[in-house]
Design a binder for these strands. Structure first.
Length: 189
DNA sequence: TGCCTGATGTTCT
DNA sequence: GAACATCAGGCAC
């Protein structure tokens, strides 16, 4: 698992965003474990005006500049959380936003926290956080540790589609959004 | 199906 | 004081 962090530290945000597609996230709840595979990501780094790290290191963005393989959680629009995997060398502000997950097991634990069925459970960054019960108490969390782990075992994916990112106004021309082709758990728009 | 809007808190200028 | 990496519900077509 330490190897996973080493690999992520050697990648730029774009490379990591494609690499993470197909990886599994394991969430430990008191009642049991849920596993989900990553099907949609977006890349952000400090050269990019849409990134939180673009304006330098602040109290909020501090973990983005920390070691790879940790979790950056931020709160937005007054009611939603979103999660990113920190990547790249320590000191460089880069991360990959997790936009969509496909449940593999433990769906009942997710539905207990977000009462929706099917793709509506996890097809969007804030939906993912609600289903996984993630808030800023997990900001900076080490993804090689419980209760939230990132596995290195990657499942095969059908293909990768590349598009512009969603919901941003700056540097919106960058083709930095990636998702598994034809996967229903990808967010809309 | 698709546009519009309200809900709501944190961060930075 | 504005901007914001969102979502869900309502209404028009």
């Amino acid at each position: 698992m330490t190897e996973m962090k080493t690999e992520l530290s050697r990648m730029g945000a774009v490379e990591a965003a494609t690499w993470l597609l197909g990886c599994e996230i394991i969430r430990n709840f008191p009642e049991g474990e849920a596993r989900l595979r990553i099907v949609e990501t977006e890349a952000y780094d400090e050269s990019d005006a849409a990134s939180h790290s673009y304006n330098g290191r602040t109290q909020r963005t501090d973990v983005m500049f920390g070691p790879a393989g940790h979790l950056y959680v931020y709160f937005t629009y007054g009611m939603h959380h979103c999660i990113n995997v920190v990547v790249g060398e320590s000191g460089y502000g880069a991360a990959v936003l997790i936009r969509g997950l496909q449940p593999v097991s433990g769906v009942e634990f997710l539905e207990a926290r977000r009462p929706k069925h099917g793709v509506e459970l996890t097809n969007g960054p804030a939906k993912v956080c609600e289903a996984l019960a993630i808030d800023r108490s997990l900001n900076g969390h080490d993804l090689s540790q419980n209760p939230l782990r990132l596995t290195r075992e990657r499942k095969s994916i059908s293909g990768i589609t590349t598009t512009t990112r969603i919901g941003i106004s700056k540097d919106s021309h960058r083709l930095w959004r990636f998702y598994e082709t034809d996967n229903d758990f990808v967010s809309k728009r």
